[in-house]
Design a protein around this nucleic acid. Structure first.
Lengths: 196, 196
DNA sequence: TTACAAAACTAACGGTTATTAGTTTTTGAT
DNA sequence: ATCAAAAACTAATAACCGTTAGTTTTGTAA
């Protein structure tokens, strides 16, 4: 009968969401049960419903909090005064840091969004499209200004975003390669290529 | 009471696996029920068990058929006589084609392998590691020979494989960009970069 | 036409799921 | 110490899950 332990400045709902993200990441949303989630919090499953409305609401919270952080940041960077390539680099670096520092939530948002129910599913996909469109526009500008090769911008943004999202597989090598090397090498690879 | 329709040279089990891949892709393995799978085949759920042993067996078939195709091909390419960069290009192009031509199965293998049970889970992860290790070795050779920049080869292979795996999000744009442009631009991006 | 095997069916099993209802305990402010 | 609100509990619900058993239908070869 112990209560759910909260951090300072955090509600019990926040703790539940955070634990849900970790659980959904390791077991997937559908395979993770409310009983398991409750157990990881030291509580019985029905007790969760004093704090949340439904299982789906947890997924919504995870997906939208993450999604909104991405579009807010890309908007901020786009409005700056740097060169296109510098802006792209800033976006890639931000995305890499988000992947590494908010691993659980970003992982769940990237993998489990398909289990959102309408209208949340459509809303989430809109956020995603907005994010991608912002970067596509940036790349197109770069091509127009001659900063970037005339590649198809859809392909370029897919390549970039897929590469950084792939950091979800990184955990295991964390020991051998520092975050600095990882960030620098990936940015360098995506902007300047692999060949000498 | 209509029977499951088979193609020439294919068993009913093959048809079930193929439909399972499509279903697991769109709904995820855990969320997809045997009753749904049966319905998509025009049959009742228990009838499936005349052809298969269990739900898990279907996932195993999908994951291992796909995984083995990847390591077989990368071994074949590695043994050739071309330059390192040419070999890398061949691997990237093969991976892109696999993604586009065997979409459902590759998608499921990439996303749902975590629901494999032991010992299949370990076996599958071994296949994955073998695949990645082959490419890492290739990149290291390229660095040693001066064909490739001295980037961390783990980071480089993560970037490359994540980028091509990201083609799972491609379907929607299929109309606007041809497969040729997609393949060429992504290869060019991953090998030679984005900047002018 | 008969006979056998393959492949479908119906009915049902025990187990798990998210969630609700109703009750008791804990906490914190007066 | 008292009282109300917050947060835990137990018990139970209907729905759905993968799978088994037993039976009937279908297709094919003799």
């Amino acid at each position: 009968m112990a209560k759910i332990i909260t951090q300072k400045n955090g509600t019990r709902k926040d703790v539940i969401i955070q634990k849900a993200a970790a659980l959904y990441k390791s077991k997937s949303y559908t395979a993770a049960s409310m009983r398991e989630l409750a157990e990881s919090l030291g509580v019985e499953a029905p007790s969760l419903y004093n704090h949340i409305g439904s299982k789906g609401e947890l997924l919504e919270a995870i997906c939208f909090r993450t999604g909104n952080r991405f579009i807010d940041q890309v908007r901020l960077i786009s409005e700056g005064e740097e060169s296109i390539v510098q802006k792209l680099e800033a976006i890639i670096r931000f995305h890499i840091r988000m992947m590494l520092e908010n691993f659980d939530e970003v992982f769940v948002a990237n993998h489990e969004w398909k289990h959102l129910q309408e209208p949340f599913l459509s809303d989430f996909l809109n956020i995603r499209r907005t994010y991608e469109k912002s970067i596509i526009d940036l790349i197109q500008q770069g091509i127009d200004r001659g900063e970037i090769k005339p590649l198809n911008p859809y392909v370029a943004v897919l390549t970039i975003l897929s590469a950084v999202r792939g950091l979800e597989f990184w955990q295991r090598n964390k020991k051998n390669v520092s975050q600095q090397v990882l960030e620098n090498d990936m940015v360098n690879h995506l902007l300047n290529g692999l060949t000498t």
